[in-house]
Design a protein around this nucleic acid. Structure first.
Lengths: 213, 213, 213, 213
DNA sequence: AATGAATGAGGATTCATTCAT
DNA sequence: CATGAATGAATCCTCATTCAT
C-alpha cells in the first residue's frame, strides 16, 4: 500500500509510524466529527491522539496531511469491510440485495467517518484529492462489477452507461444515509431504507421483474 | 421573509441592507467557490463585494452570518427558479420527467453555488443550520407533491414511504450532478444523465410500465 | 526614493506608513543592538515600536522586511549626514582629512547602527541584499570621487585601481572603528584614530609628501 | 590547549572527543556557510557531521558550543597556517611583504570559514566571546611584532600606536578580502590586492621610501 | 557510546472584529 | 453611512534538548 508513504515522516521506524498514525487518525476523526477539520487545531489533534504537538509533527509535514491520512484510511476501511462481506460467485437479485445491504450497513456503522470525509475532502490539496477521488471510483467499480454480473446472469438488456449510473446511485445512496440522516432517520430504519432503495434499483434494472424459474 | 432579519445589521435603511447584502452574497459566493468559506477572509469578501471591511460589518455581525445569507439565498434562488418552471395541473410521466429535467438543469446552472452550499453548510451555527435544512426539506416536499400526484393520477400502488424516498433520491441526484461532476461529466451529458435517472425512477415507481392508453 | 516601496504594506495612507516605519526602525535598531535580528521576536519589535503585533504586520510582510528597512535606513542616514558635511570645491589634503574625519565621526555616532548592519546584513534575502550592497558601493564611490579629485589637483600619479582600493579602505576603516571598538577604544580616541589613519592614507597616496608651496 | 575543555562532553574518551568534534566542526562550517548559524538546525549539523542528534549532544551541551568550537578552530587553523609560513630572523620590507601575502593567501583559502566567523561571532555567549576576541588579538600581535621588528631594523621613527594600528589594518584588510569579495573580486586578483595594500602600508610606514643602502 | 523518538516552549503570521474619524 | 487602521487571540509549525533503549 504505497499511498501512505506519500506523507513524509521524520521518524524512521516504519512500525512506529503505523502505530502512531493509527492513533492519530483515530483522534483526528473523533475531533473532525465534532468540529470539522478547520476548527480542530493541531494541538487538539495531538492531544486527542495521545501525544504532544511535537510528536505529531514527527509523523506528518502539514496539518493537511492528517486530513489525507484520515480520508485515505476511511476509504480503505470501507473497502476492506465491504470486500470482506462480499463473497459471491453468481450474482442473483439476492446477491445484489445482500451486497447493497452490506454496503449500507457499513455506511451506517461508519456514519461519522463518512460524514467527515464528505464534508472535508474539499480541503485536500490539489495533489491529494485525486488519490481520494480514485478510491471513490474504486467503490463505484465494485458495484459496477456486481451489477454487470447480475445483468448478464439474468440475461437483461441494460446498457453499460445505465449500469455505471446505477452503481454511482448505490454508492451515493449509501453516503446519503450518512449525510441525510437528519431527515432519513426520522422516517426509515436502516432496513426499511435498504429494502426500498434495493427495490427501486431492481425495478429500475428489470422493469419486468424476473419471474422466478 | 422573516428569516433574513435574523442577521442583525447596524444600518437602518432596509433598502440599503437589501442592496449591500446582495452585493455581499455575490462576492462571497464567487470567493467561496474558489477557496471555501474558511479560507476566504472577511477582508477578501468585503473587497469582492465592492466595499470596505468596515462597511461589511455594518451589515452582519459575524463572518458566519455571511455563510448563512449565502446558503439561504442559494436555496431561495433554486426554489424560485424551480417553481417558475414547474407549472402543472395533472402529473403524468411526462410532467414528472419535465420536472426532474428542470430541477437537474437548475442544479447544472448553479453547480458552483450548490457545491459551495454542500461543502460549507456544516460550518453553519447550531442556530442557522435548522433553517437551512428546512429549506432542503421544502425542496424534497416539492417532489413529494409531484410524485404523489403522479402516483394517484396513474392509479399506482406506491406507499407514502416510497414516495418520500423517491423524492429524496431526486433531490440528491440533482445535487449529485454537481458534487460528482468530476466523475459523471466524463460519461454523461446532462441530457443523458437526466434521461437515465428519470427512467430509473419511473421504472422504480411503476415496474409494470404504464401501458399506454 | 522608490526603494522603500518594495516592502509591501496593507495600510494605504502613505504618510502613516512613513511614520509607523520610522517608529519601527527605531524600535528594531535598539532591539537588534541588544540581541541581534534572530533573537529579537516580532512581538518584541512591535512592542519596542510602540504598537501591537497586528499593527506591525500592517506595515510589513515578513520579519525580514524589517531588517531590510533597517539596513536601508541606516545607509540613507549615513549618506545623508555625510553629504551634509562634505561641501567642497577643490580637494586638498585638508579636504580629504576633513572628509575622512567627518565620515569616521558619523561612524562613531552611529556605532550601534553600523554594528547591527554589519552583523545582520547576511540575513537579508537574496532579493534585498543587492540593494543594500549597492548602497555600500555608493559610499565607496563618494570617496573614490574625493580621492580622484585630490590626486588630480595634486598632480599625483596614482592609478585608478589604487584610488578605488584606497576608497574601500577608508570605508572599511570607518566601519572598523565600530566593529573593533572592543580593541581600538582601549588604545585610541576617535581623534587619534582619525589622525593616524589619515596620515597613513596620505603617505600611501603621496609617498613623497607634498612639499609645502 | 585548555580552552576546548571548556565545552563539556558526556563522553569520557578524550581521543574520541577529538575525532567527533573534528567531524562536527567540519560539518558545521559547511552548513554555516550555506545558511548561517541560526538557520542551521542541530539535527542538520549532526547529520552533516555523520552522526545522530543524540550523539551530537554527547559532545556538546548547547548549540552555541558548536559555534564556539567552530570559531576557535578557525582561528587556530589560521594561526597555525600563518606561523607555518612565517619564518623570519630579520624583518625587511621583503619579509613584511611576504608575511602579508601569506596572511592574505590564507584568508583567501579560508574565505568561507572567515566569513562564517565574522558573521556569526556575535552569537557567541558572553563567556565565549572574550576567548575568541583574544585569538583575534593574537593575530594582531603577530603583525605588531613583525612591524615593530621591521621599523627597528629599518631605523624608522614610527610610534607604537601607529605600529599597532598598522597591524590592525593588515588583519582587517585580510578579512576584508573575504567579506568584501562581492566588490573586490570584480576589480582585483589576490595578487593585485596584496600588492596594492602592501605598497600602501610600506608607504605609510616609511613615507621616504627607504633608499636602499 | 550511539541512537532517535518524544517533548513543549517559543516564534512568525493571520485574521475576525472594533471603533475613531 | 463608510472607511480602514489597530488590535491581539489564535494557530501552525519548528527545533533545541532530553532520555530510555
Amino acid at each position: 500500500m504505497p499511498n501512505k508513504q506519500e506523507v513524509q515522516a521524520t521518524v524512521k521506524n516504519e512500525e512506529l509510524i503505523r502505530i502512531r498514525r493509527e492513533q492519530m487518525i483515530k483522534g483526528a476523526v473523533s475531533l473532525f466529527k465534532e468540529k470539522g477539520f478547520h476548527r480542530a487545531t493541531t494541538r487538539e489533534i495531538a492531544h486527542a491522539s495521545g501525544f504532544s504537538i511535537g510528536t505529531l509533527y514527527e509523523y506528518i509535514r502539514k496539518k493537511e496531511d492528517i486530513l489525507y491520512l484520515v480520508c485515505d484510511q476511511i476509504y480503505d476501511e470501507v473497502q476492506w469491510r465491504l470486500r470482506g462481506r462480499l463473497q459471491y460467485r453468481r450474482v442473483t437479485a439476492e446477491t445484489l440485495k445482500k451486497g447493497i445491504a452490506a454496503y449500507f450497513k457499513i455506511m451506517d456503522e461508519m456514519q461519522d467517518e463518512v460524514l467527515v470525509m464528505y464534508q472535508e475532502a474539499k480541503s485536500l490539496s490539489k495533489e491529494a484529492l485525486p488519490h481520494v477521488l480514485n478510491k471513490e471510483l474504486e467503490m463505484v467499480e465494485i458495484f459496477v462489477d456486481m451489477i454487470r454480473a447480475f445483468v448478464r446472469s439474468e440475461g437483461l438488456d441494460v446498457p453499460e452507461t445505465a449500469v455505471r449510473l446505477a452503481a454511482h446511485n448505490i454508492v451515493v445512496q449509501g453516503q446519503m444515509w450518512a449525510f441525510r440522516r437528519w431527515a432519513l432517520r426520522k422516517q426509515y430504519t436502516l432496513e426499511e431504507y435498504t429494502e426500498l432503495q434495493t427495490r427501486f434499483l431492481l425495478n429500475a434494472l428489470c422493469p419486468d421483474p424476473p419471474k422466478k424459474g
